[in-house]
Each structure stands twice: as C-alpha cells, then as structure tokens.
Design a protein around this nucleic acid. Structure first.
Lengths: 236, 236
DNA sequence: ATGTGATTTGTACTATCGTACAAAAGATCA
DNA sequence: TGATCTTTTGTACGATAGTACAAATCACAT
C-alpha cells in the first residue's frame, strides 16, 4: 500500500515542506515567534534557509500556513463532538459532553498529525500571549464561531445563568487549557511528582471536571444571597 | 509638600531609571521579550539607548530588575491576605477568602505602583508563555512557596479532595488569571459588549466565584460514581 | 537520454539587534 | 569656583535577523 506520490504533492524523498512546518510549529510553540529565527527552523528541519523562503515566502507566511493547516480540522472535530453532545438527554451529562467537545480536540489531534493538536494549541497560547498580529486576525475570524456555538450550548444546559457569566467562565476554561499546555511541568513540581502535568488524559479529565463545576456555580448577581462578604483586605 | 529628593534616590529632574522600568514593563507585557528592542524601550521612556545599558547593564538585567521590584511586595500582600483568610470561621467563606487572597494581589497592585499588579502579572503570563529563562528561574524560586501555602490552605478547607486535584485546579486558576489579563478584549467581543473584559473588579469576582466552585467539584476518583460516561467521540 | 519544471543550495544584501565606550552634561560639596 | 562623581548622550562595532536571487540539483514525462 505504499503509494508512489505524484510530483505535485511531494518533491524530494522526505517531504521538506512538511518537515519545515513541523519544526516551525515545535519551535514557535516552545520559544515564541520572535525568539526563533528562520535559520533555526531550517536547521531543525534539516533544510536550507532559502528553502523556507521558497515554500512560504516570509516568516509570517510560514506561521499563517501552520494556522491554515490546523484550524479547519480542529473546528470540524469540535462541531462534530458538539453536535453529538447536544443529543445527550441528561442535562448534567450533556454539559459535561459539551465541555469535553471543546477540550478534547485541543489536546488530541485536530488533524491527522500525531499529538499535533496539543502542539498547535500550545502555539496558539504562545502567540496570543505575544500579541502576534497574524495569529490574532486568523484566530478571531476562525474560532469565534466555534466559541459562540460552545457558549450557546453551555447556556442551553444552564439557562438560569446569565450569558455574561458563561462567557467569563468559558474564557477561564481557555486560559486554563492554554496554561496547562504551556507549563505542564509546574503541575508536576507543585504536586511533588504525584501528578504528571504532561499527561494529556489527566489534564483533560481534571479540566473537564473542574470546568463543569465552574459553569454550574451560582450566577454572580444572586451569589450567596444571604451571606455576608468574607474578609478580603486588612487595610482600606 | 514638594520634598527635594536627596542625591541617592534620584538624579535628574524626572527619574529616568523608573521611566525605563515602567516603559519596559509595559512593552514586554504587551509584545513579549524578544519583540521589544532596547531602543524601543529607551524611546518610550524618553531616554537614550545607552542609558538603559548604564542602569541595567543588559536587557536580561532590566527584566530581572522588574521582577525584583514586584515579587516581594506581591508575595507579602498575598501572605497577609492568606493569614487573614485563614481566620475566617465558616468553611465556605474561608475558601472564598483564600482564593481571593491569591487573586486580588495579582490584579491590584502588589507594590505602590498604580495598577502595576495587573501589568506585572500580565508580564509574568507572557514570559511564561515564551519560556523565558530568566523569568522561569526567578518565578520558580519566588512563587512556589506562595503556591504551596495557597494549595495547603485550600486543602484545609477541602480535606476530602486529594491534593493532586487541588494542584490541578489551582493551576487552572493561574491559567485563567493570566489569560484574563492577556486578552481581556476577547471577553468583551464574545459577550457582544455586555461584559468588559478589562474591568478588574468584574474579572476578580467572576474568577473567584468560578474557582471556588471548581475547587468544590467532587474528586476525580469518585466522580460520578453511579453515572455512565457521556458520549465523547464519534469514531474510535 | 534528455529537456523541463520543481526544488534545494549557497551566498549576499540591508536592517536592526545588544552592547560597549568615550565625551558631554549635570549635580554635589569643599 | 573648581574638583569629583553620577548620569546622559552619541556613536560605533560585531552578530544576527529576514529576505532575495542565481546557480545547482533533482524528478519525471517524452
């Protein structure tokens, strides 16, 4: 079943274009965009610097292509899982399924790349932290639909919670998700080795469980209606 | 009440050293470390590039000084608030106070700078995303004590939850906290203008409420003991 | 085998980077 | 006022950045 590839899709023995993309993805995701030079990428991919220019024209073009590669498949998978989640009868189960539909594709692969989902999500986290313009544009116009669909689905399971609160909480979810992928070692360190921060399965379960509970928290307006505010500051 | 400053604490009419620190903090926090040049910082501070070298020797030294400036006060404030929180009788209220003790100093100022707390926390978020070495070292040895104290305090309020779960959930808290400061506009956008992502008070309340609920979620081992797992994937 | 188009290589150009350093300018006090 | 120390300025240097481009190399249809 080893298909001889036609000249259009691959050129040399190894697919250099793919190697460059993979190397760039990894380096960008761990060091940020500006800390990585085109020469670094080329070296990691076993390619010549000029080859990067040939395939992607500019460094920004390379980043753009990475996003193009992953956004579609990851969103598709999210919509599939979200559709399946919406068919769950039990309301509690449905909420969990909805959250899972949002979280799982970010960790596991959105495309056919092995573990590429986590790497790409980490890349998104880093780019958003750096305020990268290229990323900001493509993310806003690619993921906002998904985010709205997700927020709506959560809202359907929790009609008594104001939409505003759900937006905040889903924002926290994304932040937690990002941070789990950015510094997994911190979890291992703070748990004194009892937890493995880089274990995707654990991260998913913990994140889903915590997030479901967070979504189910009482709305802010009516929070603790008969309780006094706990002490918050010593002075002022 | 205009005190003539002694020669030791300030030299020229405006304090150039402070101006450089402030400008660097702002630029690093919004663009990342590598995207900002020493010349950018100098220009934003109205100083000469050479002046940066004079005061901080290297670019890394400048970053280090920013951390030195904030870490102490912020940690001190957290310990004060944590100590006060531990004196709260009611267990539910105590948990909320503990979470608040962790969150509030990250948003409001840890030192005497106005709004400097949020800016510095955002800086920490960006540096951690970029995997900055200087930041990683100083953070691990400065904030791990605080984090452990915080985790222990939460654990005291929730003895039935395994420590591992609490570590994960406090990790999610920090991620949510970071992300709220990095891209507040996303909250405004997704809520269609109904929420203001850059309003610190709202962010704090929302974050505290959601996090308290997340901490109170059932432990993972015993999660949903009599329930079947909801559907999670269509294939495999 | 050979010509043709796609890819890779090697190298060079310009811009900007972090940093160094000497000279100028200001502050401080005898 | 003049001596001395601190701070600011201006400029320069070597390294490295992104990108361009011509030459070399490869895959493959003819």
């Amino acid at each position: 079943m080893v298909r001889k590839p036609t000249s259009k899709e691959t050129a040399r023995k190894p697919n250099m274009r793919e190697a460059i993309l993979a190397a760039a993805e990894e380096l960008f995701a761990t060091n940020g965009f500006n800390a990585v030079s085109v020469r670094d990428i080329a070296q990691a991919a076993g390619a010549n610097p000029g080859s990067v220019t040939y395939h992607f024209k500019t460094k920004d073009g390379l980043l753009l292509e990475i996003y193009r590669r992953h956004c579609g498949p990851m969103n598709l998978r999210r919509f599939e899982l979200l559709a399946a989640a919406k068919r769950v009868r039990d309301l509690q189960d449905r909420l969990e399924a909805v959250v899972r539909a949002y979280v799982v594709p970010a960790f596991t692969s959105g495309s056919d790349l092995a573990g590429g989902g986590a790497r790409f999500t980490r890349l998104r986290a880093v780019m958003s932290a750096e305020g990268n313009e290229v990323a900001r544009k493509i993310i806003a116009q690619t993921f906002d639909d998904t985010s709205h669909a997700f927020i709506d689905a959560v809202h359907e399971s929790l009609p008594h919670i104001p939409r505003t609160d759900i937006v905040w909480r889903s924002h926290f979810l994304l932040g937690a998700l990002y941070y789990s992928l950015v510094t997994p070692d911190r979890v291992s360190r703070l748990s004194r080795g009892e937890a493995d921060g880089s274990d995707a399965a654990s991260a998913i379960e913990q994140l889903v469980q915590a997030t479901v509970a967070a979504f189910q928290a009482p709305a802010l307006d009516q929070a603790a209606p008969a309780r006094r505010r706990p002490v918050v500051s010593s002075k002022t």
